[in-house]
Amino acid sequence: MNMHFQKESGETLEENRDNLKDGLWDENSVYDYVVNTFKAYADTMVPHSPDLAERYGRIQFYGALESYTAEYLIMSFDGHATPLAVAVAEILNIAAKQYLMEKGGNPDLPGDTGGLYFAKLSQEDRLKVVDRITSPDGIIYIPAGLTTMQGDVVPLLPALNRFTMMGYYSEWSGYGSTRFMPPDKRMLEYQPISWGQVGYPGPSNGYRVAGAFDFAKKK
């Protein structure tokens, strides 16, 4: 983490200094900052849905927070040649702060919130912020002083959406305790919640449906 970001994020300098341990930022506060930002995003994309649960059954309530989707996002962004999760979290929060400023008022958060502007937004506003930073018409919310090269992180921002869908609806959360292992070591320990929600029975050896009536040549 660099000084510039800390100032941009609205914390006071004294509080930032409090977080310094032998000249380094406290790892735990960085961890919380990143995890909470990605959780806010994942929860927006695949939220808890009490209404759906009431209409269609209890399983429909659960969302990204129960399926480690924020972890998947962090793992995927950090899996690149340059680890990008911290940079993406910074971009989300600074774009969120900008968004709040445009809406008027003083967006500065009290010092103990760690600059989590993104999580402060309503779910719809969070998506509007993501839309701004992923719009092909020009990205204007990339904080100056980012330690990551802009050219490394900007083209990957639209992956926020794709990673969320893959993380939540694929088999990944069902890998359970093996989910961070290399692919040949991962084992499907249980059916992901999402599969129950969508009615996917899981991998199969085959389906006895050959000979479905042939619409192609039917006159």
Binding site: E124, V130, Y168, S170
Partner: peptide, 21 residues
């Protein structure tokens, strides 16, 4: 396809942002 790729392809990839916009 299985639901992970399916959701990514049909609902998760766009140059037009989110549907409500």
């Amino acid at each position: 396809t299985s639901p992970g790729i399916y959701a990514t392809m049909i609902y998760g990839t766009s140059q037009k942002g989110y549907y409500f916009q």
